[in-house]
Write a protein that binds this DNA or RNA. Structure first.
Lengths: 221, 221
DNA sequence: TACTTATTGTGAAATATTTCACAGCGTTAC
DNA sequence: GTAACGCTGTGAAATATTTCACAATAAGTA
């Protein structure tokens, strides 16, 4: 029993992307695909696709490439929890509501089973079919529902306390939308999704793109 | 004149993080900081911080480390547009509104100067102080306002057309929230911010964390 | 002044990631 | 049947990123 050959974060990110692309393909009726085709869709190289897929334990055929359906299955066995996974959300502001509607619609692997907000006016409501609890019930509800993963969409000032409480309640994975870095104990994985930092990155590379494309046109003469 | 020594995406991402952390520090009255302290906040290594800062062209003092204020200035000269930059938003659904409120409040470098939505019921409104136009006015408004960067928060099915139209209108940087990969011409930088893929990644590593921490406790005996 | 200490900036080593390149193998064509 | 083709899986090379390690340096101390 040695299932994990240590898959890097980058590889996991690409595997998730491959699965999404394959899903689109499958719904278009596509039955099989070659590494170079998948690479073109994912904007990578064929060698990288094959290398990534080595981690999945699914082998394609030299003649027909990969079966779209089987590969999705293999990716899902690796990436997904056996059962559909319940997720908690803390913070039912603008962003929190957007997240609830985002994950409510789609037939997603993930269902937001509990939301928490400090505003007493929101407690007791059901937003997009998800019940909203007060923050005092965090540990109890997470325990009862068997939730292991949480999203944090609270104001920056409350993020540290929120994350701490989630860790105490037994959460092992956190997706943090608040623009602050917070400490988590060993054994908890946290990822930051900071929209304004993403925007900064885009603006920076947009500028350098602009410069180089000007240079290109100059050179093209 | 040779301003760009080619800074990797990873480095830019960390520089943006450093700037945020330094901003917090400055507001707490901190005047100077050492590389290992900044590294602790950013959860990196001191050597990495120093290596990253080499790209910025600001030098610290061996005795006092880096001046928080000056370093923020140097980072901003590198990362920011000279003027406050206008951004466009396409798609004023749940997520779009969350983005508008997110970027409206804070005294951000970026201001969302124009939003677009196909729903005639939304056109003409001002959401969080941002005017909403119909999609037919995309090129005109972007041109008039001098906008170079856009955020896309439309349904998956409309993303390809939206991105195409933005590129035609002269946008050079796109932050795409729609869960589809789209083609952009040379000279346009696009970044994908796909929440459900982020959540998948978190859930995956949460599981492996759980496993290794179990192993740890077993080993700790 | 001279000595000690803690830090920076950076060449060089170590590590991580990506790409190359080719053996091996189904499939197809003749 | 067998030759030719185009693909996969993967060792090895190339490249990118991170860390190490140390000379250079400014401040504090006596």
């Amino acid at each position: 029993m040695f299932s994990l050959p240590v898959i890097s974060e980058k590889t996991v990110a690409r595997l998730a992307l491959y699965r999404r692309l394959l899903g689109d393909l499958l719904s278009q009726g596509r039955r099989s695909i070659y590494s170079h085709e998948l690479a073109a869709l994912a904007k990578g190289s064929a060698a990288q696709v094959r290398r990534d897929l080595m981690a999945v334990g699914y082998e394609g055929s030299p003649a027909r490439g990969y079966s779209v359906e089987d590969l999705i299955g293999a990716l899902s066995r690796l990436l997904d929890h056996p059962a559909t996974q319940k997720v908690a959300l803390v913070g039912v502001g603008n962003l929190g509501r957007a997240l609830l509607s985002y994950f409510a619609g789609r037939g997603s692997q993930y269902s937001v089973a509990a939301a928490f907000d400090a505003d007493p006016g929101k407690v007791g409501l059901a937003v997009n079919g998800c019940p909203v609890y007060g923050p005092d019930r965090l540990a109890e509800v997470i325990e009862r529902e068997g939730i292991e993963v949480a999203m944090v969409a609270v104001p920056a000032g409350e993020a540290a306390r929120t994350v701490h409480d989630l860790c105490t309640a037994g959460i092992t994975g956190i997706l943090n939308f608040a623009p602050v870095r917070v400490w988590v104990p060993e054994g908890v994985y946290i990822e930051y999704l900071d929209m304004s930092m993403s925007l900064e990155r885009v603006a920076f590379f947009a500028r350098s793109k602009r410069r180089t494309s000007q240079q290109d046109s100059a050179l093209a003469k």
